[in-house]
Simulated assay, not measured.
Amino acid sequence: MTSLMKAAVYRQYGPPSVVRLEECPKPVPGANDVLIRVRAATVTSADWRIRSLSMPHGFGAAGRLAFGMNAPRQPVLGSELAGDVVEVGAGVHTFTVGDAVVAFTGAKLGAHAEYCRVRADGVMVHKPSALSYETAAALPFGGTTALDFFRRGVLRAGDRVLINGASGTVGSAMVQIAVQAGAEVTAVCSSANTEAMQQLGAARTIDYTRVDFAAGGQQYDIIADTVGNAPYSRVRPVLAARGRLLLVLATLPEMLRAPWVNITSAHRVVAGPTAERVDDLQTLVDMAVDGRFTPLIDSRFPFSEVAAAHARVDTGRKRGTVIVTHAM
């Protein structure tokens, strides 16, 4: 077996053109690792932010500390993938060679390559044959974010939920998960995405180019902001008593302000990093198999065109997830 692989590598921060295919050493699994032959991965908004260092206000320095001060510390992006196990470490007993899996590498990245090393006790589960590699790869990022924020925000049946940025990867996952929980969902998106949101179960849509949802008379029990333009000061008038604001994308000032709002008002602001849990990934797989959750896929690109996939994400106009596929 060759010791080299192709990987999408970026050696400097910048636009999609900094991403290039290179021959790199294939990862060698340790005792508690598995090596996965990647069949499908995604390019997400997180990859865009890391690649370009386009961090939310206040997180610029933190971004460089986390990912590399002057150049990327981890040159291979990509945090979600589906593929086949080709090697297992001596201490691995939960996965075997030939298993189809779906995995979420989180901040460790590394999925934009032909092979990816993942810890066997990480956020990884078996992929059922009923799910395609593409569908499976699109589950972790948006789905786990939605589940974690709704858990912290205490989503209940009957809640009036507004999703700001409903057509994105996280937003479209939130729409579906809230609908499945019995909530009444309002999706904020462009008119071009209205039909898609209705198909996902949204009871109502608001075209943000024409209507300011925060200026209306409707009250919401939960407002989830995946865009970063709905701080507490803006949405307070339409947040119901004991309402919860979920800041999926928050600036540093908004995160620092959240505890004060929670202490001094009847509202609650939820912000901060998302927990990455294997149980959540298994829940998403189960929901996808029985049709309760279908990740919205915007477009598909062959691995040879991964830079074009980055460019699609950079437009800010994608609907759902951008997939990168490898030849079988």
Rank of each mutant, 00 (worst) to 15 (best):
Q199L: 09
R210V: 05
V185Y: 01
Q198D: 02
Y208H: 15
M197A: 05
D207N: 13
A196Q: 09
Q180N: 11
S190C: 03
C189Y: 00
Y208C: 12
I223W: 02
I223C: 06
R204Q: 14
A183W: 01
I222M: 13
Y208I: 11
N193A: 15
Y208M: 13
T205S: 13
A187I: 02
T194S: 11
E195A: 14
T194M: 10
A178Y: 04
M174I: 01
S190F: 00
D207P: 05
G216E: 07
Q176C: 12
V185T: 03
F213N: 09
V179Y: 05
V211S: 03
A183L: 09
G201H: 06
Q198R: 15
V211W: 03
C189F: 01
Y208W: 15
V175D: 00
A181W: 13
I223M: 07
V211N: 05
S191Q: 13
E195N: 05
E184Y: 13
R204N: 11
S190D: 01
A203N: 07
G216H: 06
D221H: 13
M197I: 03
R210T: 13
G216V: 05
D221F: 02
V185E: 00
V185R: 00
A214C: 06
V211H: 12
N193G: 11
A202H: 08
A181G: 12
A203P: 04
Q198Y: 06
Y208T: 12
R210W: 01
T194W: 04
M197V: 03
R210L: 10
F213G: 11
A178H: 09
A192T: 12
G201Q: 06
D212V: 07
F213W: 15
N193S: 15
D212W: 08
F213H: 12
Q198C: 11
Y220K: 09
A187P: 04
M174H: 00
Q180G: 14
G201F: 04
A203S: 15
G182E: 08
A224F: 07
A183P: 07
A187M: 07
G182W: 09
R204T: 10
L200Y: 05
V188H: 03
T209C: 04
D221S: 07
Q180Y: 03
M197N: 04
A181L: 12
I177P: 01
G216A: 05
A192H: 14
V188D: 11
S191N: 11
A196V: 13
I177T: 08
I222W: 12
V185F: 03
S190N: 09
V185N: 01
I206R: 02
G216I: 03
R210S: 10
S191I: 08
A224W: 04
R204C: 04
G201R: 01
A178W: 02
Q198V: 10
A215Y: 02
S190Q: 02
A202Y: 02
Q176L: 12
G182V: 09
I223F: 04
A192C: 03
A183H: 02
I206N: 04
A196G: 01
A187T: 06
A196S: 08
Q219S: 10
A202C: 12
I177H: 03
F213R: 06
Q219W: 05
Q176D: 09
Q198W: 06
V188I: 14
R204F: 06
